[in-house]
Nucleic acid binder design. Sequence first.
DNA 1: CTGCTTTTGATTATCATTTTCAATTTATCG
DNA 2: CGATAAATTGAAAATGATAATCAAAAGCAG
Lengths: 143, 143
Amino acid sequence: MIQDKKNAFNKFAAGKGLRSTRQRDCILNVFLSTHQHVSVEELYLKVKACCPGVGQATVYRTLKLFVEAGLAREVLLHDGQTRYEHVQAGEHHDHLVCTGCNAIIEFENETIEKLQDQIAERHGFMIRSHKLEIYGLCADCRS
Amino acid sequence: MIQDKKNAFNKFAAGKGLRSTRQRDCILNVFLSTHQHVSVEELYLKVKACCPGVGQATVYRTLKLFVEAGLAREVLLHDGQTRYEHVQAGEHHDHLVCTGCNAIIEFENETIEKLQDQIAERHGFMIRSHKLEIYGLCADCRS
DNA sequence: CTGCTTTTGATTATCATTTTCAATTTATCG
DNA sequence: CGATAAATTGAAAATGATAATCAAAAGCAG
């Protein structure tokens, strides 16, 4: 499925007349190899490890392309850094967000999803997506 | 209910040994008179209109106090500006958001809340608040 | 009032992100 | 193959929102 995403990006790039470069390949590889929500800084450090000489500006620019291409999504936490997360097919949007350390724990709960469907139906509402965020303190930050 | 909020802030201020100042009163009045999500800049302009000479720094500082006092909440949009919205007593955090007409339908579901508690407990997480947003089309926009 | 502490406003600093621009790289076409 | 035009890059500078600094002013207890 990593290949799928690479193909998706290439298709997007071709459609926009973008050129294929070593830097973009590298950044895409690194991004696809990450989990959770990565900040630009984190990504930049990883990219430097495998492709030294790549500038931050390029990382910033390329991430915006990924968003345009539908591969990534910006996530705003409260630490002043924009983070990027993968856009997955059939992904879930349910998170426990720790306001202490900004950790994010993802979860999925089928019962909650079903209840959402019921509620939507009751209001004649057609669901396209949803986001459930629970804020609080994670186990580490409580102690 | 505006008075309630003023009282709430005064109580908070008293508890923290904060002093009552003309600037804070003015900023609180202006904030309470706004709707939607206001940016610091917008607030600053309105404050200047009624209390000229108030500095931006004071507006920033005071808004953070409102958050601490539980009157306001930071909202991060994707325009690089932090906005503040009102925290209302007995407010619901569960919304059906219509992407067609921007209508917002509030709802509450006890079962979902309980499930959230269970999930949090399972992860050793202490819930402070939550937000559930279901995006889609409302009955009107579907037709 | 007096003295002590908080608050303020102006300025400066900080930090993430964006822009600029000359140099380089890529794709295209003869 | 080259040559050419267009896109891309990296380094550095610019930007813009927010935070920190600090001397002066204001609030408050005695």
